[in-house]
Simulated assay, not measured.
Amino acid sequence: MSRIPRLTPARAALAGDAAAAQAAAAPAHDADIPVDPQAGAFFDCDNTIMQGAAIFYLGRGLYKRKFFSSRELARFAWQQAWFRVNGAEHAGHMADAKASALSIVQGHRVTDLEEICEEVFDEYMADKIWPGTRALVQMHLEAGQRTWLVTAAPQEAAKVIAGRLGMTGALGTVAEAVNGVYTGRLVGDTLHGPAKAEAVRALAAKEGLDLSRCAAYSDSSNDIPMLSLVGHPYVINPDADLRRHAREQGWRIRDFRTGRKAARVGIPAAAGLGAAAGGTAAAVAMYRKRH
C-alpha cells in the first residue's frame, strides 16, 4: 500500500472540531488513498470506544424523556457504576439491561428512538469517547480500510456512534418492529460473545474481507472469539481475564485509562498502517493538549 499522504480527518476529529470532523469524514477515507478491499477493522464499543456502556447512557436519555420510572433509572445507574469500576461486562448485568431496554421501548416508534439516539450521543456519549481508540478508527480509515462497530448495544445506537466517528457501518442488537413500532422482542439474540464473532464472520464473507488481514479491538474477555478470528487482534482497556489471555497469546495491549502521555501509549499499527501510526499518535497528543 502507498504511503499515507496526510492525516487531516484524524486531526480534525481529535481536535474536537465537530463540524470539521464531520466534513472530513465524508467520504470516510481520502479519495486519493486506495481502498484495501480485503482488510478492515472491527471495534467493540463499551469501554473500548467509549468509557462506560452505550445502553446505560441510552437508558439515562430515555428516562429524561419520561420513558420509564426513577426506580428503573436507579437500576441503570447501578449497572453503569459497576461497569465503570470493573471495566468489564457481566452476563447477568447485560441480560438485565437487555430486558429493561426491551420493555422500555415496547410500543414506541422506531423513528422516535433513532432521533433520541442522536440526541443521547450529544448529551452523554460524545465526551466519553476514548481519544486513543478514536485515533485508531481514523488511522484505519485514512489507510483506505473499512471499519465497523460491533456491539451488543441496540442497532439504532450503534449506527449513531459509528456514524459520528465516520465508520463504515455498525452491527448491533436488533429489536423487532412491526409497522415501525417495537414489539418488545429481539430479532435473533443479543450480539454478545460468540454471537458477535459469528456476525463478524458473516460480514467478512459478505464484504469479501480476508480475516487474516483484518484487525479487531476489544476490552472484554467475552470478545475473545471475535479477537481470535482476525490476524491482528488488539486489546484495549482490558479486563483481568482478557489481559491474561492477551499476554499468553502475545496480543498487543493498550490501556487508555492510565493517564499516561500519548507519546508513551504507543498506538499499535495493523497490517499496512505503519506509515499512519506516528501521525496518529501525534493527533492523540494534540487532542489531549487542547483538552
Score class of each variant (00 low, 15 high):
86 N>T: 04
86 N>Q: 11
86 N>K: 15
87 G>D: 01
87 G>F: 11
88 A>F: 07
88 A>Y: 00
89 E>N: 11
89 E>D: 12
89 E>G: 13
90 H>G: 09
90 H>A: 06
92 G>H: 09
92 G>P: 06
92 G>Y: 08
94 M>L: 11
94 M>N: 09
95 A>C: 04
96 D>M: 09
97 A>F: 10
98 K>V: 00
99 A>W: 04
99 A>H: 06
99 A>K: 11
100 S>W: 07
101 A>C: 03
102 L>T: 00
102 L>G: 02
103 S>A: 11
103 S>G: 13
103 S>N: 07
104 I>V: 11
104 I>P: 00
104 I>L: 01
105 V>R: 09
105 V>P: 08
105 V>K: 06
105 V>L: 11
106 Q>N: 05
106 Q>Y: 04
107 G>W: 10
107 G>E: 07
107 G>D: 02
107 G>P: 13
107 G>H: 10
108 H>L: 03
109 R>T: 00
109 R>C: 01
109 R>F: 00
110 V>F: 07
111 T>E: 13
111 T>W: 09
111 T>F: 11
111 T>S: 06
112 D>F: 12
114 E>R: 14
114 E>Y: 02
114 E>I: 01
114 E>A: 10
116 I>G: 03
116 I>T: 10
117 C>H: 05
117 C>M: 12
117 C>P: 09
117 C>E: 04
117 C>D: 07
117 C>V: 06
117 C>W: 04
118 E>A: 10
118 E>K: 15
119 E>F: 08
120 V>G: 00
121 F>T: 03
121 F>G: 02
121 F>K: 14
122 D>M: 05
122 D>Q: 11
123 E>M: 09
123 E>T: 05
123 E>V: 04
124 Y>W: 12
124 Y>I: 00
125 M>Y: 05
125 M>W: 08
125 M>P: 03
126 A>E: 07
126 A>K: 10
